[in-house]
Amino acid sequence: MNLAAFDLPEQTHELSDWLVTQVTGPNLSSIVAQLSAIHSDQDHDLTIEAICGEQWNSIIQNGFSELTQNQFQQLLTHPYLLMELQERLLLEGEEYWQKQFLNQNDDSEIKQTKLIIQETLQKPILDSEATQQAEDFKKVPYRKIAALGFVSAALLFFAVFLNQEPVATPGWGWNRPGALTADIPADQYLNRLADSANEWFKKPTDTKAALLTRLTQFRNGCETLINAPHPQLTIKDRTWLIDRCRAWAGKLDNQIVALEKGADLKTADANADALIHKLVKALQNRAEQVT
């Protein structure tokens, strides 16, 4: 192992260049691990905003040259912030940072990936399937087509008849139109998400079918939440929310599978209620923490 973190320069102006190289380079994770091992007794309460304050604009335009020694020290002793810093510079950094990141990249790797993607796009699976189906259709005699048509119509009728309560109906919870697009402060937004999740308790889930439908709908809401941009939140809160939602989605999937495999209704219902209670509480707690 190369202990690269031990090679940090002594002078503040050199420290600035060193940190730029580390934040834009491929060894950042290792640097963070090494600094975390050395500064393991530090708290995790500090934020990038608290350290950089009003200098953030200068950082995204010109790099770290204006940071004081004290600010560098805070970043080095709270290394978990360096990963977030890298992401924010990738997203918000201006020309200076774009150049720094581009200098660190391997062009051949990017070109290679582009070629693979282009090839895949030019041979889409669905198109080839459609072509194949068209070819197959030409080969089928007319009587068979009529018979297939009849069978398909019958299947469609049964599908509609049996599936009277659609599984993925949007319209409540996180799938309610407008639930994720309100232009409100972060704490209100998180509380609103908690209220939306609480809609779970508005409908009875006293049969297996009802519970399964409701769980699946809630799981779909989770997917909507994961894929939404959440402009109301900071990157850190957005990351927290989406990471939590991934975890909730995983637990919902497990509950759905258990129910489909014949889990006891009462237990499954109680587990689902407990999970929703927990996630509502987590959202409300987070709302209290955001500024």
Binding site: P26, L28, S29, M83, E87, L90, F101, N105, D106, I110
Partner: peptide, 12 residues
């Protein structure tokens, strides 16, 4: 965006 996505991924 590809160079920036790769930089994001490489350290994660």
């Amino acid at each position: 965006h590809a160079p920036f996505l790769l930089a994001f991924l490489k350290v994660r």
